[in-house]
Amino acid sequence: MAESIRTGRRKPAGPLAYAALVAASLFAVGPLLWALSTSFKSPDAVLTDTSWIPSAPTLENYTIVLFESQVPRYLFNSVVVAGATVLATLVLATLGAYATARFRFRGRGASLFFILMTSMIPGIAILVPLYFLAVEVGVYDSYLGLIVVYTAWQVPTVLWMLRGFFQTIPTSLEEAGRIDGASDLRVMVQLVLPLAKPGLAAAAVIAFVYVWNDYLIAATMVSSDDKRLVSVGLYNYLSQYGIEWGQLTAAVLVTIVPMVVLFVLMEKRLVAGLSAGATKG
């Protein structure tokens, strides 16, 4: 599997490859460097100081964002909602993926087809109905409403992904477990899940980032300020008087930090997990 394959020797990168890597990195972070630069400029300097290195750097924007705004609260909300969504998605999708990967049963193909179809529904099509449904059921403007919607939104992708992953895990282990008299559920939880960890980690990261970035659902399902997610909260800097660039960019950078940390921590697992699941066609 992935781990063993990686030990194979590939040609190290040459100067051309490094040049390409640097170019790609610049394309990727160029706009963010500009955001970084702007975040250290005072409101007056934002439009007048057009250099990439602020001539009079200030921490004012960060102070305001961290201590005088609701951004920390939004961050907390996003972490809670994204975290809960990841958990719920993994539980539902793991069960479903395991069932469809390991058992033959009537309606399996139809169920898989159904789940695939729902991922084709444009979010914009169902925002309004979802809103009314959420209000009626009493989950509008609550974490729960967001979590349920995001979970349902993520389950199809993650289920298909994990199904591919389970198919790469040999069944011999499970058979051995069954011979020892373990129940199907125990086999799944104690023998298969530990092997599926990389796949679960990769799925978790993808689902987490999705929730982190989403704007439309977050803006539709929640309206009180103390439950707002970070992607919507950034809209506070788009005022009638124009964009508060310094504070907006500072807020953006503050919100990137946890994601970068998450990525660096998860990088190995993410790639390894995906490589096992991704190619299983």
């Binding site: 539902l92 159904f114 169902i126 449904l133 919607v149 979970t151 349902a152 389950v155």
Partner: peptide
């Protein structure tokens, strides 16, 4: 999984 996806 099917139920949650169906409702939403």
């Amino acid at each position: 999984a099917v139920v949650v996806v169906a409702v939403v």
